[in-house]
C-alpha cells in the first residue's frame, strides 16, 4: 500500500514538475542570453488559454500545443522589443507582461470557463525502458511532452556547454561587449532566445491544461510561473539541475494531493500552501549555500546592450 503510494507520488512528481521544467528551461535560455523575463506566469497562462481554445475548436492536441507556443512566443517578442530595443526596465516590463497576459487570457477565455477538456495528452510506455522496475513506471510511462522535456534537458545541456552556439549564447549574457567584438550580433541573439524562452513557457502552459488541470479557469497557473523562475535561480542556470529542482517542486505539489487523497487531517487549503513555502525555503537554502561563490547568474542580465557604446 505505502509502496504504491510512493510510486504514485513520484510518478505524479514528474508529471507535475514537467510544466515547471519546460518553463524553467526556456527562462534559462532567456537569462543566459542576458534578458530577464519575469512574465513567465503570464506567458504560461496565455499558452494554456490558447491551447485550450484551439483544442476545443479543432480537437487536435498537436495544434493546441503549437498554438500555446506561438502565442507565448509572440508575447515574449513584445518583451524582447521593449527590453532589448527600447531598453525598458526589464522588471517593470515583465510585470506588465504578466498583468497583460493574465488579463488577456481571462478576457479571451471568458466563453470557455469551466468547460472540461475534450481530451488530454495520452500517456504511453516507452518500450524496454518502461519495463525497468520503478524507474520505468516513474519516468517512462508519461505523455509526449514529458519525453520532449527529457530531450530538451539533454539537448540544451549539450548545446549550452559544448557548442559554439552555446558559447555565443553565454557570452551575450556574461559579457556582451566581448561577444560583440568577436562579431556576434548580441541583440539578435537575445531576441532569438527570448522568443524561444517564451515558446517553452507557452508549452509549459499547454502541458498544464492538456494534462495537469484539464479545464480552463482564470489564473489557473496559480503562481507556477514564479516557481519556475525560482527554479532557474536554484538550478544555477543549468538544465539538468533545473530538472531535479522541478521534480522536487512537482513532488511537493503531488504530495499535497496524495495527502488529501488519504484524508490526512489537515485542511486542503493549508496543503495548497506547500509549493509556495517550499519555494521560499529552497531559495533561501540555495542562496545560503552559494554565498561564498560570489555573484551568481549571468553578469550582464537585465543590462541592455548598446552597440554604439562599445
Amino acid at each position: 500500500m505505502i509502496q504504491v503510494m510512493i510510486l504514485a507520488t513520484l510518478t505524479a512528481a514528474v508529471a507535475q514538475g514537467t510544466p515547471l521544467l519546460l518553463t524553467a528551461l526556456g527562462e534559462i535560455m532567456t537569462q543566459r542570453s542576458g534578458v530577464l523575463n519575469l512574465g513567465l506566469e503570464g506567458m504560461m497562462l496565455m499558452g494554456a488559454a490558447s491551447s485550450f481554445m484551439v483544442l476545443v475548436n479543432t480537437n487536435s492536441l498537436f495544434l493546441a500545443v503549437v498554438a500555446g507556443a506561438v502565442c507565448s512566443g509572440l508575447l515574449a517578442l513584445v518583451h524582447g522589443f521593449l527590453s532589448i530595443t527600447c531598453r525598458v526596465h526589464q522588471i517593470i516590463c515583465g510585470l506588465a507582461l504578466n498583468m497583460f497576459a493574465g488579463g488577456l487570457s481571462g478576457y479571451l477565455g471568458k466563453d470557455y470557463n469551466g468547460i472540461p477538456a475534450p481530451k488530454v495528452l495520452p500517456s504511453f510506455r516507452i518500450p524496454l525502458l518502461a519495463d525497468i522496475p520503478y524507474v520505468g513506471e516513474i519516468f517512462f510511462y508519461q505523455n509526449g511532452l514529458v519525453y520532449l522535456s527529457y530531450g530538451l534537458v539533454i539537448g540544451l545541456t549539450y548545446l549550452i556547454f559544448h557548442t559554439q552556439i552555446g558559447l555565443k549564447l553565454r557570452a551575450c549574457g556574461e559579457n556582451p561587449a566581448a561577444a560583440y567584438s568577436m562579431g556576434i550580433s548580441v541583440n539578435r541573439t537575445r531576441y532569438i532566445y527570448v522568443v524561444m524562452g517564451g515558446m517553452l513557457a507557452g508549452i509549459g502552459g499547454s502541458f498544464l491544461i492538456l494534462s495537469t488541470v484539464p479545464s480552463w479557469v482564470e489564473n489557473m497557473t496559480g503562481g507556477r510561473g514564479w516557481i519556475a523562475l525560482a527554479i532557474v535561480t536554484c538550478a544555477m542556470w543549468k538544465p539538468a539541475a533545473a530538472m531535479a529542482a522541478a521534480y522536487v517542486f512537482g513532488g511537493v505539489e503531488a504530495l499535497g494531493y496524495q495527502l488529501q487523497a488519504v484524508s490526512v487531517n489537515v485542511s486542503p487549503v493549508l496543503l495548497k500552501m506547500l509549493p509556495y513555502l517550499a519555494t521560499i525555503l529552497v531559495l533561501a537554502a540555495v542562496s545560503i549555500g552559494n554565498q561564498d561563490k560570489g555573484a551568481a547568474g549571468p553578469e550582464a542580465m537585465t543590462t541592455p546592450f548598446i552597440p554604439e557604446d562599445n
Partner: peptide
C-alpha cells in the same frame, strides 16, 4: 469578464514602460 480591466491595466503599464 473583470479581467478585461486587468488587460487594460497591463497594456497601460506596457506603454508606460
Amino acid at each position: 469578464p473583470v479581467s478585461t480591466v486587468q488587460m487594460i491595466q497591463g497594456s497601460i503599464l506596457f506603454f508606460v514602460a
